[in-house]
Amino acid sequence: MGEVVNVLVAFAVIVFIFRWATSSNDTTERSAADTLGFRPKPVTQDMINTISNMFPDIPVDNVRYDLLRTGSVEMTTNKILERGFLDAPPPAYYALFPRETNPTPARAQPSAVTTKSIPKESLISRYHLEERIVTEKPVPEEMVGGKAIWEDSPEKREASLRERKAMMILAARQRMLSQQEKA
């Protein structure tokens, strides 16, 4: 019986010494997982910018905090779409990610490609309808939208869809031009 007690005491001393030797000397510094209460996922600035550009009214700190939790742009986007907001980060979050002194959000910083350098492409040029504008006849309203006839082959269905898109674009152009003439 006495030997069992000696073995248990020796085992406890060995465990205590092992834990003491492997623990960090600085106990004041806590890890991000201890501070936040969960293991943060890796988050890039591109992920934050993507969501901030889609939802400019959501604060950047809320976006970063949710991305740290989920690690996914899609999940954070779905949460915003379903709920309309993101939870505010707890005060411990600001110990790891202090607020910027400059209130300019990250999404407002200019990127390498600005919107001024990207030429705006019209629907007419995107769908190659330039030649149809020259010989433009009024598009009857009953041809725009409505139900399509189900075609036998995928190629015919694709051509039918392409033609319906073209009719809708041309009809929208006609309405826009008539509104501009009225004004």
Rank of each mutant, 00 (worst) to 15 (best):
M1E: 12
E3K: 03
N6I: 05
V7R: 14
L8N: 13
V9S: 13
V9F: 13
V9R: 15
A10C: 07
F11D: 14
A12E: 12
V13C: 15
I14V: 12
V15L: 14
R19T: 02
R19A: 06
A21I: 08
T22C: 14
T27K: 15
R30A: 08
A32S: 14
A33H: 07
D34L: 11
D34Q: 15
F38P: 03
F38K: 01
R39P: 00
P40V: 08
K41H: 11
P42K: 12
Q45V: 13
Q45H: 09
D46Q: 14
I48R: 00
I48V: 15
T50G: 02
S52H: 05
N53A: 06
F55I: 01
D57H: 12
D57M: 10
P59N: 07
P59C: 03
V63F: 03
D66M: 14
D66E: 15
L68W: 07
S72Y: 00
V73K: 09
V73N: 07
V73P: 09
V73G: 06
E74R: 13
T77Q: 15
T77I: 13
T77V: 12
N78K: 10
L81A: 11
L81Y: 04
L81R: 15
E82H: 06
E82G: 00
G84I: 00
D87H: 11
A88R: 11
P89M: 08
P89D: 01
P90I: 09
P91M: 10
P91C: 08
A92Y: 00
Y93R: 01
Y94A: 08
A95I: 13
A95K: 15
A95Q: 14
F97D: 04
P98Y: 05
P98S: 10
R99C: 05
E100F: 00
N102Q: 04
T104G: 02
P105T: 04
R107Y: 06
Q109S: 01
Q109T: 01
P110Q: 11
S111D: 12
A112I: 11
A112K: 12
T115I: 09
K116H: 07
I118D: 06
K120C: 06
S122C: 05
S122A: 06
L123P: 02
I124W: 03
I124T: 12
S125Y: 10
H128W: 03
L129N: 04
R132S: 13
T135V: 09
T135I: 02
E136S: 10
V139E: 01
P140D: 06
E142I: 00
M143L: 12
M143W: 07
A148Y: 00
I149V: 15
I149F: 11
D152L: 09
D152V: 12
P154Q: 08
P154T: 04
P154Y: 08
S160K: 10
L161A: 12
L161T: 01
R162Q: 05
R162M: 09
R162T: 13
E163S: 01
A166L: 02
M167K: 03
L170Y: 02
A172R: 10
Q179D: 02
E181W: 08
A183R: 06
